[in-house]
């Protein structure tokens, strides 16, 4: 069953909109099996959501994203998890990763303007007790996200020739 799960996940990670029947056909199993597996993986929080990848830059709607390197002091008895929770509870925070290297968390923040994001960092994030320092990196352009190149749409350039 692990193999089946991996197959389902690998497929829907790239194409979450495929309908159940088609997914079953493509994977060569019956629909009920796929439906059960999906339901179970949702219940186990293996599948955490079905999101849409949007290139906001092309819409004219203002959005600013920043990657913030955060150094913290872990809290006694709680390690990093408690600090992370303090940070990820803010709705402005898009993602929080604990990482190895010269700082501790990589935090992604999304806002409407540079100002809004900076303000969040200075008003909310930096003042947190355990935060030692922050370094804000604004994203200027997204070339590739979630394995998808945003810049160009791929066209089929194959030419018809002697078969």
């Amino acid at each position: 069953m692990e193999g089946m799960r991996e197959k389902i996940l690998t497929f829907i990670e790239k194409n979450s909109r495929i309908d159940l029947k088609e997914l079953a056909i493509v994977l060569g199993v019956d629909e009920v099996t796929v439906a059960n597996e999906l339901e179970q993986m949702e219940a186990e929080n293996i599948i955490c959501g079905y999101h849409t990848l949007i290139d906001w830059d092309k819409t004219g709607i203002e959005k600013v994203t920043a990657l913030i390197e955060v150094r913290v002091t872990p809290q006694r008895g709680m390690g990093f998890d408690k600090v992370a929770e303090r940070i990820y509870n803010y709705p402005e925070v898009n993602s929080v990763y604990l990482i190895s290297g010269s700082f501790d968390f990589m935090v992604t923040i999304e806002g409407k303007t540079l100002r809004e994001v900076s303000q969040f960092v200075s008003d909310k994030l930096s003042p947190l007790e355990s935060v030692l320092s922050t370094k804000t990196n604004f994203i200027l352009k997204k070339y590739k996200d979630h394995g998808t190149v945003m810049a160009e749409q791929k066209k089929d350039e194959r030419e018809l020739m002697t078969p």
Partner: peptide
């Protein structure tokens, strides 16, 4: 290819 093959045959 195998997945597509199954789909087309179906």
């Amino acid at each position: 290819y195998d997945g597509r093959r199954r789909y087309v045959l179906h």
